[in-house]
Amino acid sequence: MSADATSRSTSATISPNILRYLTAVTDELGADLRPALARVGLDEQMLQSADLRVSYRQGSEVIRCALQLTGSDHLGLRVGARQHPTAWGLMGFALMAAGTLRDAVETGVRFQNLSGAMVVWSAGQADAGFTLWADQPDPAVDAGVGTFLVQEAFASVVTVTRHALGAEFCPRHVDFLFAAPPDPAPYHELFGCPVRFSAARNGLAFPAAWVRTEMPGRDPVTFASLTTLLDEQLASRRTRQDLLEVLEISIAQSLPDVPTFAEQARRHATGERTLRRRIAECGTTYEALVDGVRRERVELLLRRPDVTLTDIARQAGFSDVRALRRAIRRWHDMTAVELRDTVHHS
């Protein structure tokens, strides 16, 4: 990433479905995820809000903490296996009203940004037949978090499909990019099919007969009505995401100076009150966006051993090194030296 760009990872645009189920599963395993939620500005009550959106960064940090607390190599499988079509909101009902399983999968891919997905879904015909692929939105994602996300993604797809079509559904095979874990048995038990590790890409292949299977709740009228509503939601979401992205890029390009909120309102030819309301509708604040961009800049500069903390503080817009150290402690609960060592080894 160039110094004058920023990442969508700071924008709050993801439905917190995964975090809701993750909190329930970690409770069952005797781990308390609430302090981790608090560190990224969330709590259990907030996770119950249908309007809440979290950033990829917030989600990743909570997942990373859950992995550390539980020590589970299969946490993503457990979280995915807890889900139901209704966990995906309106899109879940649209999947149940689709004509065939293939129609349902393609609908899920089309509206993936509304379901709380933290992977990038795509689907198409491959040598093995109709296949659903799950790619990481950020190739530099922490390896443990990346493994969790793909586990959760495929486990939830299989679980939701079984809710809709019956417990006998099994994929043709499931491929994972990561290496085989010490104990692969939970994968075979959950998927009930060949599971291949160290594959070229994360993919789930569907048996041809299942692809053509009609959904029990198929209803063309209901399906059309629901997809119309989903299209409207998607259009609204894109408008909101565009606003956040424009603001983040503006902040990043201005560092070490930060545009005042009044300046941003003028740039958008709107009043401060209106702009603040639009940002709030995205589930965040201008201050949080500034904090996220600064954080990303700091983490980027810490990867360069030739840049001192004084230089980083200046380039990221902090008043001095002490303010930078306090921010790093708040973000990561570690010192600047510890964080620099962490990013160098990540």
Score class of each variant (00 low, 15 high):
230 L>K: 09
231 D>G: 11
232 E>W: 04
232 E>Q: 15
233 Q>Y: 06
236 S>G: 14
237 R>T: 05
237 R>D: 03
237 R>E: 11
238 R>M: 11
239 T>D: 03
240 R>M: 01
240 R>C: 01
241 Q>F: 00
242 D>E: 13
242 D>W: 07
242 D>V: 13
243 L>S: 02
243 L>Y: 02
243 L>N: 01
244 L>T: 03
244 L>W: 00
245 E>M: 12
245 E>Y: 13
246 V>Y: 04
246 V>H: 07
248 E>N: 14
249 I>K: 10
249 I>H: 12
250 S>L: 15
250 S>D: 12
250 S>W: 13
251 I>H: 03
252 A>P: 11
253 Q>V: 11
253 Q>P: 05
254 S>V: 10
256 P>G: 02
256 P>I: 03
256 P>D: 01
257 D>K: 10
257 D>S: 14
258 V>H: 00
259 P>N: 03
260 T>F: 00
260 T>W: 04
260 T>C: 04
261 F>A: 01
262 A>Q: 14
262 A>E: 15
264 Q>N: 01
265 A>M: 03
265 A>C: 02
266 R>D: 10
266 R>K: 11
266 R>Y: 01
268 H>E: 10
268 H>S: 07
268 H>Y: 12
269 A>K: 13
269 A>H: 14
270 T>G: 09
270 T>A: 09
272 E>R: 14
274 T>D: 13
274 T>W: 08
275 L>F: 04
275 L>T: 06
275 L>I: 10
276 R>H: 10
276 R>Q: 13
279 I>H: 07
279 I>E: 10
280 A>Y: 09
280 A>N: 12
280 A>L: 12
281 E>F: 09
282 C>M: 12
282 C>E: 04
282 C>G: 11
283 G>A: 05
284 T>Y: 01
284 T>S: 01
285 T>L: 06
287 E>W: 02
287 E>I: 05
288 A>S: 11
288 A>P: 02
289 L>F: 07
289 L>I: 13
289 L>R: 07
291 D>E: 15
294 R>P: 06
295 R>D: 10
295 R>T: 08
296 E>L: 11
296 E>V: 07
297 R>G: 01
297 R>N: 06
298 V>S: 03
298 V>T: 05
298 V>Y: 03
300 L>S: 07
301 L>R: 08
302 L>F: 04
304 R>H: 12
305 P>Q: 05
305 P>R: 10
305 P>S: 08
306 D>Q: 14
306 D>S: 15
309 L>Q: 12
311 D>V: 11
311 D>M: 13
313 A>H: 09
313 A>T: 08
315 Q>C: 03
315 Q>P: 06
316 A>M: 06
316 A>T: 04
317 G>M: 02
